[in-house]
């Protein structure tokens, strides 16, 4: 490959008058291209290195120190405390609570969002023939909105005598005081998360459904398989990598949930909606930077593991 390219270039050069700066040996030419390539990469490398890699590494180091807001003036003077911050974390009831809350949010929220997203995708793809794009726009709109803004709106809707309980009242259900109940505050947040994120999965699943071969579905129908059997036996297995991808992508987002409790409940009542991100933010607010870093790294490890799963799934697809 490389040799034919250079030979072609050489033959051209034989026709044209050779220019002095291009008369370089192959090694020198490669070195020259390396320099040019790194010049192209330079702005990215500088910004990315300084604002991403350095903080990522610093956060790791800080989680083994007793860094507080007082150490900002002299960051190198902090003391290393080994695993003390992590020991304090897992001994801290609030942190354990925030871990459980985050787990609750992800484990209940992800399957629900996936089910709704899949139902919408299948309905749009197979169930109807007209108005597809209008429905797609409608279901996707919540995705583009600011979580802070929709959290404000939902806080209003979730008031004890708000819109949701009004509608529930029509069918004879007396809705709870969603956001002031330790039992219902989390389901309320999950409900909002499903509403906001189902559009993302709908789009991803719609793209995946294009891979389901139509002739196979038709053959199955000729053989007498009903719609449900076709869905379970043909569509779902083909969709599996897409489902996994959607699940991981969304989990990474769900694991970081922060704006919803920040705006809607301040983490309450009684820490029932305190997430790991929110805990980290609070420790940062108290000036306990070391502890905050340790908490965020716990979250990061979980997210990294999930990304690894996705990476493998992607690779096995190729």
């Amino acid at each position: 490959m490389v040799t034919t390219e250079t030979r072609r270039a050489d033959s051209f050069r034989a026709v044209r008058p050779p220019r002095a700066p291009e008369r370089l040996g192959p090694a020198a030419r490669r070195r020259r291209q390396s320099v040019i390539a790194w010049l192209f990469a330079l702005p990215f490398v500088l910004i990315f290195g300084f604002f991403m890699l350095v903080p990522l590494f610093s956060s790791f180091v800080m989680s083994f120190t007793d860094f507080t807001s007082k150490d900002v003036r002299n960051p190198l003077g902090v003391g290393f405390v080994g695993l003390d911050q992590f020991a304090e974390l897992f001994g801290n009831e609030q942190f354990v609570r925030s871990l459980l809350n985050t787990g609750y949010f992800v484990i209940v929220g992800i399957p629900l969002t996936m089910a709704v997203g899949l139902a919408l995708a299948v309905a749009l793809n197979n169930g109807i023939t007209r108005f597809r794009s209008a429905f797609r726009v409608g279901f996707y709109t919540p995705v583009v909105t600011s979580i802070v803004a929709v959290a404000v709106v939902w806080r209003f809707i979730l008031q004890p005598d708000g819109l949701l309980n009004l509608i529930l009242g029509w069918v004879g259900i007396a809705g709870p005081d969603w956001l002031n109940s330790t039992e219902w505050s989390m389901p309320a947040m999950i409900m909002m998360a499903v509403w906001r994120n189902m559009g993302t999965l709908m789009i991803i699943f719609l793209a995946g459904l294009q891979n389901v071969p139509v002739d196979v579905l038709e053959a199955a129908q000729v053989d007498g398989a009903n719609a449900w059997q076709r869905f379970v036996r043909i569509t779902l297995p083909i969709l599996r990598p897409t489902l996994l991808l959607g699940a991981v992508l969304l989990s990474v987002g769900f694991l970081q949930f922060f704006e919803e409790p920040f705006v809607m409940t301040k983490g309450g009542p009684l820490d029932s909606t305190l997430s790991v991100s929110y805990f980290t933010f609070n420790q940062f607010g108290y000036g306990k930077y070391g502890l905050a870093s340790a908490a965020s790294y716990v979250l990061f490890v979980v997210i990294a593991l999930l990304s690894l799963i996705q990476f493998r799934a992607l690779r096995s697809k190729d």
Binding site: F48, P55, S59, P75, F284, Y289, A292
Partner: peptide, 19 residues
């Protein structure tokens, strides 16, 4: 670094920006 969440980097980032 595709999936590094902002919550992991914001504490040291704040220290750097302060400095």
């Amino acid at each position: 670094t595709l999936m590094v969440p902002g919550v992991v980097t914001f504490v040291p980032l704040f220290v750097m920006v302060s400095k």
